[in-house]
Lab assay of single mutants.
Amino acid sequence: ENVVSAPMPGKVLRVLVRVGDRVRVGQGLLVLEAMKMENEIPSPRDGVVKRILVKEGEIDDTGQPLIELG
């Protein structure tokens, strides 16, 4: 899985990584606010952040691509 998608609709509060960062499975990639709760979205695998497809403050839909890993 190279693309991390939104598991729920919500607002992107914080992006915790930058392009080029090495990430490990379970590491937080970004924080979504949904139903007044903050949810940290973890990396599904080890890899390198290739692209960040959303910006802080954006509203996303379920299934929307958020981050691409390489």
Score class of each variant (00 low, 15 high):
Glu1Trp: 14
Asn2Cys: 15
Asn2Gln: 10
Asn2Tyr: 15
Asn2Gly: 10
Val3Ala: 06
Val3Tyr: 14
Val4Glu: 03
Ser5Cys: 15
Ser5Tyr: 15
Ser5Pro: 08
Pro7Ala: 08
Pro7Lys: 08
Met8Glu: 05
Met8Pro: 04
Met8Phe: 15
Pro9Thr: 10
Pro9Gln: 11
Gly10Asp: 00
Lys11Cys: 08
Lys11Phe: 09
Lys11Thr: 10
Val12Met: 04
Val12Leu: 07
Val12Phe: 00
Val12Arg: 02
Leu13Cys: 08
Leu13His: 03
Leu13Asp: 00
Arg14Leu: 06
Arg14Ala: 06
Val15Thr: 03
Val15His: 01
Leu16Gly: 00
Val17Gln: 01
Val17Phe: 00
Val17Leu: 02
Arg18Leu: 08
Arg18Lys: 13
Arg18Thr: 09
Val19Gly: 02
Val19Tyr: 03
Val19Gln: 07
Gly20Asn: 06
Gly20Ile: 03
Gly20His: 06
Asp21Pro: 01
Asp21Tyr: 06
Asp21Ile: 09
Asp21Arg: 03
Val23Tyr: 03
Val23Asn: 00
Val25Glu: 12
Val25Asp: 04
Val25Cys: 12
Val25Ile: 12
Gly26Phe: 06
Gly28Asn: 08
Gly28Asp: 03
Leu29His: 00
Leu29Gln: 01
Leu29Cys: 06
Leu29Phe: 02
Leu30Glu: 00
Leu30Pro: 00
Leu30Asp: 00
Val31Cys: 05
Glu33Asn: 04
Glu33Arg: 08
Ala34Gly: 09
Ala34Tyr: 15
Met35Ser: 11
Met35Gln: 12
Met35Arg: 10
Met35Ala: 11
Met35Ile: 06
Lys36Arg: 12
Met37Lys: 12
Met37Phe: 09
Met37Asp: 06
Glu38Thr: 10
Glu38Pro: 09
Glu38Ser: 09
Glu38His: 10
Asn39Val: 15
Asn39His: 15
Asn39Gln: 14
Glu40Pro: 07
Glu40Asn: 07
Glu40Thr: 15
Ile41Thr: 02
Pro42Ser: 11
Pro42Arg: 14
Ser43Thr: 04
Ser43Tyr: 03
Pro44Phe: 05
Arg45Tyr: 13
Arg45Asp: 04
Asp46Arg: 07
Asp46Ile: 06
Asp46Asn: 12
Gly47Ser: 04
Gly47Thr: 03
Val48Gln: 06
Val49Ser: 01
Val49Trp: 00
Val49Ile: 12
Arg51Thr: 09
Ile52His: 01
Ile52Ser: 01
Leu53Glu: 02
Val54Ile: 11
Val54Pro: 02
Val54Met: 06
Val54Thr: 10
Val54Glu: 02
Val54Ser: 05
Val54Lys: 05
Lys55His: 12
Lys55Phe: 12
Lys55Asp: 09
Glu56Ser: 09
Glu56Gln: 10
Gly57Cys: 08
Glu58Gly: 06
Ile59Met: 12
Asp60Ile: 15
Asp61Tyr: 15
Thr62Trp: 11
Thr62Asp: 07
Gly63Trp: 07
Gly63Arg: 07
Gln64Gly: 09
Pro65Arg: 06
Pro65Asn: 06
Pro65Phe: 07
Ile67Asp: 01
Ile67Cys: 04
Ile67Trp: 02
Ile67Asn: 01
Glu68Cys: 11
Leu69Asp: 01
Leu69Ala: 01
Leu69Cys: 04
Leu69Val: 08
Leu69Phe: 09
Gly70Asp: 14
